[in-house]
């Protein structure tokens, strides 16, 4: 097997008011709109090369339509197709162009019912910076000015099944998991990675097929302060933050987009290598794992119970 999955490539997010969503993602989050059709808007952060990392699609529902992970090579994708089939997944081939600006891929469902795709090629758009002698950041960023997408968190009725699928069929590594007690191994929730961050995808217990949030990366802690300023100025409903996660050690603000999808701006956390031993959180300390500063019952209830 080559190098397999590289990172989260793009998410397709359903929004109930496309124009309100455009205003939010472009004028508040500062993403670049690389294309739009009557029912879709394509977005990328200033530090991303590919044509898009977010697709907003007009719908009468909020939530996640699908997520797509980028794979290093077609050879790797063939190997992953075999692994998926061996695992018992029903895999469909996606033809070139079926996803706008995206090459051939694979589509399947996780045990949690979420639709996942793999792809290798997406049309190159380029960063907002040159490849030769670039400045550290581009001029003219709007609002939060998020550089890139980072990860997503989904809910599942039986999280351990989806975790097992992602690890065995798709070679995800586990950084951290929630367990009943120190001696137990079965994950109640888990944080998985293919890149060098502590999570590209995480799974917590909840309803199947639901999105808890997807997150944008910010380069440093002070950027969270600026994001909070921007959110408040634009009346973006802030869910929680600024906070610190015990799990991943990241720092965060959670907020909602105009359709009610939860988003996160995230920074920090450690570099994760595939050889790291899994960090465990026991249920009695889980509140601290989620919000290290304000580990209040009340905060956790609104946080983990609200999904789209």
């Amino acid at each position: 097997m080559g190098e397999g999955i590289m990172r989260l490539g793009f998410v397709v997010v359903q929004v109930t008011d496309l124009e309100a969503a455009r205003k939010h993602y472009v004028e508040v989050m500062g993403l670049q709109m690389t294309d739009r059709t009557e029912n879709e808007i394509y977005l990328k952060g200033w530090d991303e090369y590919d044509h898009h990392s977010i697709v907003l699609r007009q719908s009468n529902k909020a939530g996640l339509e699908k997520m797509a992970f980028k794979v290093h090579t077609y050879e790797d994708m063939e190997q992953l197709e075999k692994q998926l089939q061996r695992y018992g997944a029903s895999v469909k081939r996606v033809s070139k162009g079926e996803n706008y600006k995206v090459g051939e891929g694979l589509r399947f469902r996780l045990p949690s019912g979420h639709t996942m795709e793999l792809f290798v090629d997406m049309e190159y758009e380029g960063k907002a910076l040159p490849q030769v002698n670039p400045a550290p950041w581009p001029e003219g960023l709007i609002g939060v000015g998020a550089p890139r997408i980072d990860h997503l968190l989904i809910t599942a009725e039986r999280p351990h099944e989806t975790v097992d699928f992602l690890m065995k069929a798709l070679n995800f590594y586990m950084s951290e998991k929630v367990v009943e007690n120190e001696r137990s191994e079965t994950p109640i929730a888990a944080w998985l990675f293919r890149s060098y961050t502590p999570h590209d995808i995480a799974i917590i217990p909840g309803k199947d097929e639901r999105l808890h949030h997807f997150a944008f990366w910010l380069d440093e802690f002070n950027e969270l302060r600026k994001a909070g300023d921007v959110f408040s100025k634009h009346d973006v409903p802030i869910d929680v933050g600024i906070e610190r996660h015990g799990i991943t050690r990241g720092q965060t603000i959670y907020y909602f987009d105009p359709a009610g999808n939860r988003n996160e701006v995230f920074t920090g956390g450690y570099i994760a290598y595939p050889d790291m031993p899994v960090v465990k959180w026991t249920v009695d300390q889980l509140a601290r794992g989620i919000f290290y500063f304000n580990h209040r019952q009340e905060w956790i209830e609104g946080f983990t119970g609200v999904t789209t």
């Binding site: 909602f256 009610g260 939860r262 009340e298 905060w299 609104g302 119970g305 609200v306």
Partner: peptide
Amino acid sequence: QPSFRGCWRGGCAF
């Protein structure tokens, strides 16, 4: 009563 923790946007059903 806990503080309100939903999306305010007709998305989350809280």
